[in-house]
Design a protein around this nucleic acid. Sequence first.
DNA 1: GTTGCCTATGCAACTGAGTGCATAGCAGAG
DNA 2: CTCTGCTATGCACTCAGTTGCATAGGCAAC
Lengths: 182, 182
Amino acid sequence: MALEHAILVSLLEQPGSGYELARRFDRSIGYFWTATHQQIYRVLKRMENDGWVDVREVAQDGRPDKKEYSVAEAGRSALSGWLRDPVEPETIRHDLAVKIRAVAFDDPSALIAEVVRHREIHVARLEHFLEGEKRDFPDPGALGTRQTLQHAVLRGGIAFQRMHIEWLDDVLATLHRLRPDN
Amino acid sequence: MALEHAILVSLLEQPGSGYELARRFDRSIGYFWTATHQQIYRVLKRMENDGWVDVREVAQDGRPDKKEYSVAEAGRSALSGWLRDPVEPETIRHDLAVKIRAVAFDDPSALIAEVVRHREIHVARLEHFLEGEKRDFPDPGALGTRQTLQHAVLRGGIAFQRMHIEWLDDVLATLHRLRPDN
DNA sequence: GTTGCCTATGCAACTGAGTGCATAGCAGAG
DNA sequence: CTCTGCTATGCACTCAGTTGCATAGGCAAC
């Protein structure tokens, strides 16, 4: 499980509240890890009990108070230990692949629309990533350690989206070959 | 959830027992979906209760009896309905990406070994996929519908592994640039 | 002054998936 | 004739993650 560790990294990059973390998980960190605010609050509570993070009540004006979390020494060493632990590559779960094979027993037309829809989603994500790259890493030669690493991860996301789009084009061509009338 | 549907597709391609399904999930279907035998037996039981599959006790010689499952009409229409239902692209969960960003707060050396290990795993998978491609689709021009679709899915797996290997090379170069002495 | 929206935190219930363990038939090695 | 290993099925426990719901402060629009 890496949600704890993703939160630790995010809090090391910038301390913040559960709400702020949830928003980050919609943005940069969310490029490669997702979490809802409920999960984040639950895990933060557990991490607080385990002494991995420190909490500080912060009064804000114009907004409700928030609890600002920051990484404690125990959290830092937990992260350090995890970094030394081997993790297995994520197991692949791909609904669309199941659907594609299922077309052998059903009508392809519905799937073509679905594949086109997925392609659009991946194109949108790619554009989103490329915008983020242009905004955050305009001069890749002049980055600090943290930015260099963030950029490497983002390049992974970009490569993933591009690969996906190419493959979906391949799938669409295959489906059309099976059904030349569509 | 698509495990049910992956099982339906697999049983449509070829009826079989839970044990046989588990082995298929280590091979062709496992290229893009994984499941342990416990999961498969549990889901098969549920699918049987829901009338999605039919069971037939088969006596074998030299081996224990098995239950051979095949897709019932209700299962076929459930699959058909699911095909028409939009599914969302899988959420990305990438431990390694978390680890890469974490390196900003720790020593890179341990991660380099981990990245090399992951690269080896993906190279092995790529070779495995390419062998499967050579074995099962030696003449891509002369395939039936089912094989054409299976091949398209396999090409996706191949593209995924290649993309991953290239990205890990990129990451390794980045890590070495940060630590020229390693 | 009520309605809608954003910030902010959280509980409860459910579900999917993983881990560990148990059982049993049968074969071949030693 | 026992041990190892493969085939074959399954239960129990645990945990991560999703969904739905609840609460509450403050702001702006109408």
